[in-house]
Design a protein around this nucleic acid. Structure first.
Lengths: 134, 134
DNA sequence: TGACATATATGTGTTTCACATATATGTTAC
DNA sequence: GTAACATATATGTGAAACACATATATGTCA
């Protein structure tokens, strides 16, 4: 972590790009679901960051989720009192940080669920509207 | 557009905030649907930016969508060949720019629809999983 | 010992987003 | 007639989100 040239990495643009043959490639918008998925995963029990990455990727149908952002996100959730963590040094393997959901976190998950139901309704309406006259 | 102090505007954070009474307020993630909604609106005929703002807000159940970002977005879509536009000076009222979907734009809309179906499946799965053990 | 998986972490440029303001014109009420 | 408001397009801008890269340490397995 000192120099990092990063010369010219291809531009990213609103989740879409055109392939060589002119057809479009778009990414299904899933990143806003990562935090809710994470809270949901923790509702079923404690977990480490690395486990959570796998579980969330599985929930969301992603090959992998970005570890850097996940760990940063977890620390932020902890700052906000949504999760708590503690180190497990005694175990075999590299020491891990075990995360658990707080009461505040559970209430946030409930609120997320309501909000996502709204999103789901609107998304369905949008897709219905698309199908209705294609 | 010269000085703009903007001293300290309340922090925004992952679409959530805590209300005074400790309960959570979260915003349903809808902004990724704005571009698809816009293309869909244009599939049914030409429209001005201002009209589109209303139609999209209606589709998505938003009070209003941000005009600044909408107009910038439209110009970008035009640069990318997804929409075309022309001024209507002759009409009454302030002159308007009328947008229309190109063939490329229509093909992008198709691709968006497929991607959003995937998002919908995952979102449903997530919400089902939430309901299954609450 | 070398390759790979587990596990956590920071670096960092680009894009997205929300909020604010500028500008011009048409409409309605007082 | 003018103030208030709606229509219509546009730019400014800082913060947050995102994607991609790298650093570091340890365990496993061939």
């Amino acid at each position: 972590m000192h120099k990092s040239p990063h010369p010219h990495r291809g531009r990213r643009s609103r989740g879409r790009r055109r392939a060589e043959d002119g057809t479009w490639r778009v990414k299904p918008p899933l990143t806003p679901l990562i935090e809710p998925a994470l809270l949901l995963a923790l509702r079923d029990g404690t977990a480490h960051g690395y486990d959570l990455a796998d579980q969330i990727a599985d929930y969301l149908g992603l090959k992998r989720i970005d570890h850097g952002n996940l760990y940063r996100g977890l620390r932020r959730l902890e700052e906000e009192g949504i999760v708590t963590s503690q180190w497990n040094d005694g175990d075999l393997g590299r020491s891990k940080r075990t995360y658990a959901l707080t009461d505040t976190g559970e209430s946030l998950l409930e609120t997320w669920a309501e909000a996502l139901q709204f999103t789901q309704e609107r998304l369905s309406a949008l897709l219905d509207s698309y199908e209705r006259k294609s």
